[in-house]
């Protein structure tokens, strides 16, 4: 495993990009890693573009800045592709993960010539089928784990089960749907490798 993995999340206020970054930090922590999960704060409005970040490492973390050259980028809202330069600084040996019903090839023209891997996942479809609501961040979390390989997928699922049980202690009925969302996301996520 690489020493340090840096991830940038793009979403719109209210979609849970910040929560996704915190959940990823949480599950990475439970596998023994050093973690940072933090949003970029500004005027917070529903629907406005927001950015959140993760640093995950085997060693203690001490840099306290935003991330400008991420290994991975997750785009929770497809419409941001037209509004934000989501591939800015993204390393070509990394990957971008996009919530869209489209095929990776269809998305390519909007990625400013990005040469790395492109993962797509219809997180809306997955969350509607499993949770019954459009909550894209849970399926996106699974897709980011697939793309980044930051932890073993079975270990991820096992730890998320515990994490959801804790998070939803007052409404345990939603744990199963969220777990299904993760495993369905891992089945549904598609990849296009531009380097090949």
């Amino acid at each position: 495993m690489k020493k340090l993995t840096e991830i940038r999340w793009h979403g719109r206020g209210g979609q849970g990009a910040k929560t996704a970054s915190l959940l990823l930090a949480d599950v990475a922590f439970s596998t023994g890693m050093y973690i940072q999960g933090f949003p970029e704060y500004g005027p917070e409005r529903m629907g406005a573009p927001i950015t959140a970040y993760n640093r995950l490492s085997d060693e203690p973390l001490r840099v306290h800045s935003n991330i400008y050259e991420p290994d991975y980028v997750a785009v929770v809202d497809e419409t941001l592709l037209d509004a934000v330069n989501v591939t800015a600084g993204l390393k070509p040996e990394g990957a971008i993960v996009i919530n869209t019903a489209k095929e990776p090839e269809e998305i390519l023209p909007k990625l400013n010539g990005y040469k790395g891997k492109v993962y797509t996942l219809d997180a809306k479809k997955v969350s509607l089928a499993t949770i019954g609501k459009n909550i894209p961040n849970t399926p996106m979390l699974a897709a980011v784990v697939r793309a980044s390989g930051v932890m073993d997928e079975q270990l991820f699922l096992d730890n998320m089960q515990a994490s959801f049980k804790h998070k939803f202690a007052t409404k345990p009925e939603v744990v199963e749907g969220n777990m299904k969302a993760l495993s369905m996301a891992l089945e549904e996520v598609k990849v296009y490798d531009g380097s090949k």
Binding site: L22, A25, D26, F29, M33, Y34, I35, Q36, G37, F38, P39, Y41, P60, L61, H64
Partner: peptide, 12 residues
């Protein structure tokens, strides 16, 4: 402590 940078960031 530094607002947001450490107050709102989750760390181990």
């Amino acid at each position: 402590q530094d607002g947001f940078i450490t107050s709102h960031a989750v760390e181990r």
